[in-house]
Amino acid sequence: MTADRSRPMDLPLVTMFGGFALTGLVTVLLGPALPGMSERWHIADSQAGLLFAAQFFGTTLTSIVTPWRVRLSLVAGYALVAAGMATLAFAGYAVAIAAFALLGMGLGLSLTATNLLVGSTDADRRGRLLTRANFFWAVGAVVCPPLIGLAERLQQMRPLLLFLAVMLAFVSVRLLPLLRMKEAEPNVSADAEQHQTGKQAEPPIYFFLIFAVILFLYVGTENSIGGWITEYSHRFLGIPAARASLAALTFWLMLVASRGIASELLRKVSEAAILLPATMLAAAGTLLLLLRHGTAVVFVAVAVAGLGCGPVFPLLTSRLFARSGSSRHVGWVFAACGCGGAILPWTMGLVSTGTGSLRTAFAVPLAALAMILLFILSGSRHGRAASET
């Protein structure tokens, strides 16, 4: 079976990228909203961590099945996210767990399907298009903190959530024509098709396992920093809950800026030339958050972490698609992303409750970034050794 590779002109990129921006907003919504929710519902960090876990375990479940029906998953995913937002608008803590699980299921479908469709484009455009798609996701993430902060100050959170639900439902309807297009048969590497007319075996299973671990660690790191930094600023810097979202805004703003820069740099430099320095920068910013310091240093640390995190996910997924194409194994690799997004922020909540220090809990994403660096350095050494033989 041959994969029906997508071309950029075949896809409704304006709607897909616009929808991706909305998913970025929804994905990070819990972080900026957490201080207000914690005060209203009187919940501990360990209970707040369950909300992260519910969302990203939902993402894990649906990411696995997405490669089997990519376009249907895209349309259904936005519908589920819309339903989750509408439910959250009327939720208390117990119902919010179910609402975030529903959101996560929809995000697992829509995010994975978008990455699969964009990742199956021509090899020479794949890295730039994936970086651009994730740039729009990050734009939504940037808009989220000030929007949530404004809604909290005006006490208009419910109308905001219902408005977002309507917008997401609109995207789902706009993508319905995709269902009339033939589904790809995702079994063969896209790059292999470009060079051969026959079938080519997929990469060995350990290849997918390695990427599953790396993406588990990265998505968990991104969601840990972006998810907890608002509460961190509120608690340790004494910033009011409605304004503490400025720290999350700084993180996502630098993340989106670095993805935009990386998208242009990739015209001139290789993906490898960006990936390693970016990961090191993210680790340096996270390390700063573990140290005692004032407001200015916190915002510098958050900015550095965001700047480093920006290019990492799209460059890793570009490497994944370069070898695997549209393999169905990609589904459980993206499921590992959702699992990391659930487990690492939840672990931070448990560490914070156990040690009595949210600052100490930032050792969790720092350890994850250190492991990613080890994988990248190991892969670079193996690549050089292979090229010399």
Rank of each mutant, 00 (worst) to 15 (best):
A386G: 08
S270D: 11
L290I: 11
L13S: 03
T62Q: 10
G285F: 12
K268A: 12
A86N: 01
A247W: 03
A33V: 06
F362S: 02
A335K: 05
L209S: 06
D10N: 01
Q55N: 13
V171E: 04
E271H: 08
L111V: 13
R5K: 12
R153A: 15
S120K: 05
K182W: 09
V298R: 01
P146G: 10
V139W: 06
A192I: 07
H329P: 01
P145N: 05
P35F: 09
F362P: 04
G383K: 14
G108S: 09
A273Q: 15
F299T: 10
P186R: 07
F251G: 08
P145C: 08
L102R: 05
A169F: 07
S326K: 02
G238C: 08
G260N: 12
G108A: 10
L255D: 02
A284E: 13
L287F: 15
A244I: 14
M157K: 11
T2R: 14
N187E: 15
V166Q: 05
L11N: 00
A370Q: 05
V364A: 08
P277S: 10
R180H: 11
T360F: 07
S258A: 15
M16Q: 04
A342F: 08
T2N: 11
V173S: 06
L217S: 07
S258D: 11
R7W: 03
P365H: 03
M254K: 04
G354A: 15
L215P: 00
G306N: 06
S326L: 15
V28L: 13
M37S: 00
Y206Q: 07
P8G: 05
L320C: 13
T221Y: 00
G104M: 09
S73N: 12
M254A: 14
P177N: 14
A201T: 11
G36F: 09
K182G: 11
T60G: 10
Q194R: 12
P345S: 11
F313N: 03
W332D: 12
L275E: 07
S380Q: 13
L266N: 04
